[in-house]
Each structure stands twice: as structure tokens, then as C-alpha cells.
Amino acid sequence: MIGEHVIVGYTGESGGRDALALGAAISRITGGELTVAAIYPPGSPGLAVEAQANLAHAAEELGPAPAEYMAFESRGPGRGLSVLASRIRADLIVVGSTDGGQNGRISIGATSDHLLHLSTEAVMLAPAGYQPPDEPSRLTLAYVHRPQCDEAVERVAQAALRLGVPLRLITLDLRTDDPGRLGDDLALAVRLAWESTGIEAEAEIAEGHDVTAALETLEWLPGELLICAASEDAQPHRVFLGELAMKVLRASSCPVTVLPRGFS
């Protein structure tokens, strides 16, 4: 299960604070390590000092919660977080939304865009203004019938079992596919979750003329986490988010985790 070692990409902006709160909550729930990182560009002593100052602010916000704080030099924040995560063997990178986006929704900037197309670790994004509850309430996997999602069903079912929360599998019906086939595919995924873990997953088909309308037909609990599998176009052991999954991410009102291809 991801969350054994969480790295948070921290900035002094609101998105950095949202990521810090979410990353700290995840590490508390999983009992994993927490690293807070501030990335700064090479050849910029002033920004290196600013990164250290940001980390001091992060430590004040976290208080006594155990964490390691690291300033790291890199040509770009996304690249820096990915490289640092590999070096310290973190398995989850948490970042926030860019400033100026809609409150309660995920807004993708340069850092998150880089991670969503090249990261070797799972990536979690916090909606703007997100305040995590003390405990998770449910894991929801966006399911499409393909090998990447079938692998994710087993992994997410194991995580739900370990956390003691329900598992929900959702499929979007955007009125372009055969509803009967979508239902059959979802039933097979529910069976896969049961056979691999003994957990009885909920299953819902969300109908709408677009992704946002479909997701709005579903109930979302406080403390819910949405998971997406990487695209089939992703390189092995890397994240790459397809067009539909990107739309799901932008329309989500809860944190979204994207798993690398071949995640284990």
C-alpha cells in the first residue's frame, strides 16, 4: 500500500499548505515516514534561502508531528520532487493545486503536470482549500476495463482492507458506450476485488453528458480518496495520465491519487 514514505512538495502558497496537511494526514493514517521538500533552482542563493524559510514555516504548521525537512536543488520543481522521491525511496508524492483555481477543485500547474506525465512514484493531488479529516472514509477507483485498471483493483482493494474502509468502483457512462457492457465490465471488477481480498466492493455507473456532470451524480464522502490508474501509454513504472483521467482529476472534489504503470 502506498504511503510507507510520503514526500510533500511544499511552497509558501496555499497549494503548498494544502499538500502539507494532506501529506501529513496520509502518513499519520498509514504510519509511514513524512518528508517535506522545498525545491529551488540551481545558481539561486536567494531562492535557496527562501526554500529553507519555507521549510521552517512548514515545521511550524506541523508542530510536533515527526517529519524530515529537505531543501533540494533542481531545474524544475516537478523534476526535483521525482528525483528526490527516488533517492529517499518515497512511494507517494503529494502536491497541491495552483493558486487562482476554483476552491474545492484540483488545478494543475507546471509541477503537477510534470509529475502526472513522468513520475515513477504515485502522485496525489489536493483540491484547493482541502482540509483532510482525521480518518479516511472510503477508497474509490475510477475503473475502465483494461489491464492497468484490473491491476489497480487488486492493489486498491488490499489498501481498503488494510485501512478498514469500504471500496467503491465507478465507471463513467458518457452516453458514448454500451451501458450493458459497462455494467458487465464493472461486475467483473467487483468479482476481481472479492477473489483477491475477500472485500465486497460497491459499484456505481455515473451517467452524464460529460465527466463533470457524471461525477456530480455520485455521492462523495468527507475523507474519500479517488484513485486513477496510469494510461496504457505510460512507460513501465511511470505515471502518465490519459485525457479522460485528466478530466476526472480536474472535476474531482476529493484528493486524487494516480498510480504508476505496473504499481506494486
Score class of each variant (00 low, 15 high):
48 A>P: 02
49 V>G: 01
50 E>S: 13
50 E>P: 00
51 A>P: 06
52 Q>A: 06
52 Q>M: 04
56 A>G: 07
57 H>M: 14
58 A>Y: 06
59 A>C: 04
60 E>P: 00
61 E>C: 07
63 G>C: 01
65 A>V: 12
66 P>S: 05
67 A>R: 13
67 A>W: 12
68 E>H: 13
70 M>K: 14
71 A>Y: 05
72 F>Y: 15
73 E>N: 01
74 S>H: 01
75 R>G: 15
76 G>S: 12
77 P>E: 10
77 P>Q: 09
77 P>Y: 05
78 G>P: 01
79 R>T: 11
79 R>H: 12
84 L>D: 02
84 L>I: 09
84 L>K: 11
86 S>Y: 07
86 S>P: 10
86 S>Q: 14
86 S>I: 02
87 R>A: 14
87 R>T: 10
89 R>S: 15
91 D>N: 09
92 L>Y: 03
93 I>E: 02
94 V>W: 04
95 V>E: 04
98 T>R: 15
100 G>P: 08
101 G>I: 09
102 Q>L: 08
104 G>D: 08
104 G>H: 10
108 I>P: 03
108 I>T: 12
109 G>K: 04
110 A>V: 03
111 T>V: 10
111 T>R: 01
114 H>P: 00
115 L>Y: 02
115 L>C: 07
116 L>G: 06
118 L>Q: 09
118 L>R: 15
118 L>Y: 13
119 S>M: 01
120 T>M: 01
123 V>M: 00
124 M>C: 11
126 A>H: 05
126 A>T: 09
127 P>N: 09
130 Y>E: 10
130 Y>N: 02
131 Q>A: 12
131 Q>T: 14
132 P>T: 05
132 P>F: 06
132 P>Q: 04
137 S>L: 12
138 R>I: 10
139 L>G: 01
139 L>S: 01
140 T>G: 09
142 A>D: 06
144 V>E: 13
144 V>A: 11
145 H>P: 04
145 H>E: 15
146 R>S: 14
146 R>Q: 12
147 P>E: 08
147 P>K: 05
147 P>R: 01
148 Q>I: 07
150 D>S: 11
150 D>V: 01
152 A>H: 12
152 A>E: 11
153 V>P: 13
153 V>Y: 11
154 E>R: 14
158 Q>M: 06
163 L>S: 08
